[in-house]
Amino acid sequence: MDVSVKPFGLSGLKVKAEGRLDLENAVVFGTTVKNAIADSDEPVQELVIDFEKIEFISSFGLKVILELYKCMKEQEGTLKLVNVSEQIKNSFRMVGFDKFLELD
């Protein structure tokens, strides 16, 4: 899975990934993003994950998103998911993540 993490603004990180956020990829994806947050010079205030090219999310992917949310919450930052397809939104709704995640 290709994951690219780019800083934006003063303290923002934008994540782009392509493919399936599943058993095979979720852990790699999560580790990459968490490392990027840790490596950032400034504390990350805004994390944006672009779901445009993500075609599938499984429970493993959902688990990683929850981890990232908690991680951002700890450093008083925000997590935003953009370009989320209706199908993936449904998956978030099923487990109640839509109550606290910012989905766009």
Binding site: L62, K70, K99, F100
Partner: peptide
């Protein structure tokens, strides 16, 4: 229905 901070990471899959 728990707030995100209190939600455990596991157990989601079978529920789904």
């Amino acid at each position: 229905t728990l707030p995100p901070e209190e939600r455990p990471l596991g157990g989601l899959g079978i529920f789904m």
